[in-house]
Design a protein around this nucleic acid. Structure first.
Lengths: 135, 135
DNA sequence: TGACAACTACTGGTGAACCCGTAGAATCAA
DNA sequence: TTGATTCTACGGGTTCACCAGTAGTTGTCA
């Protein structure tokens, strides 16, 4: 329902929350500063305050600090992001999207297996839906 | 070499140029206004002026109007966009990216065929690289 | 209870994307 | 040549993401 559209930084923060379930500003600040550019504590705090307004996270008080928890599912968010990107850049053309996505990347055998399994599954749905060959 | 990173509007304009080879501001303005929100002529002009500064397009004079031509390849741009999105959102995890990309979308039989062909091709490269079955 | 450390609230600044209007230049037709 | 038309150059305004500092608050511990 909530139309969430996290920015890059917000997504970084959400990744930490998804990984840990919940986290304080301090924890997220340390986490993102380890993997990328170090950020000021207040910067991360501001980020969460904006995210809370957007309905992406909520907080509860623990001691004197706030503990933040994600309100959006990782899976949903990723799907929407992927879908949005697909529509925006490739006008919904899945095949071209995949060609370009895969071209630069080397896929492992297991990834290829998984991909094939996905195709098989899709074929199943396909034949169910299009039994009569209509559009 | 040129590190191009078109924004959404820039990409819209580029799509028109790729389709036609080249186009005047007027043509692009009409084209994007047909498919989406109508934009003022000067808005599109400004867009091109910025894009030219970024090295995304160049122009030549024809009559009193400028004709713009893309300086970046469609294919390259799409690949970079797809790769960037993959890294930014999914930290480079191709399989998860694909799962989410495909989940919401219905694929046609021909798209599935094409996808399988891509996988077969990838397996060819794969077996060359991983003959000893390591990791 | 008082001081200190760590936290939050609030405010502001910067840069980029986006949008458009006005003024002036160029072209063309009468 | 002159007027109308259509273009470009330029400047400005708005919004948003992002970053961070300051001031005030809160909890803790001696």
């Amino acid at each position: 329902m909530a139309d969430f559209d996290p920015t890059d930084r917000e997504l970084e923060a959400l990744k930490v929350l998804w990984e840990r379930g919940e986290a304080t500003v301090r924890e997220v600040c340390d986490a993102v500063s380890q993997t990328g550019e170090p950020l000021a504590y207040t910067t991360v705090l501001s980020l969460f305050q904006v995210m809370e307004q957007k309905g992406l996270v909520e907080h509860r008080k623990q001691g004197k600090a706030y503990v933040y928890r994600p309100l959006v599912e990782r899976k949903n968010t990723f799907r929407k992001l992927a879908g949005g990107f697909l529509d925006r850049v490739f006008d919904g053309a899945v095949d071209e999207y995949l060609v370009h996505a895969l071209e630069g990347k080397k896929l492992s055998a297991s990834e290829l297996d998984q991909l094939e399994a996905m195709i098989a599954k899709a074929r199943g749905k396909q034949s169910d839906k299009n039994k009569w060959g209509q559009q």
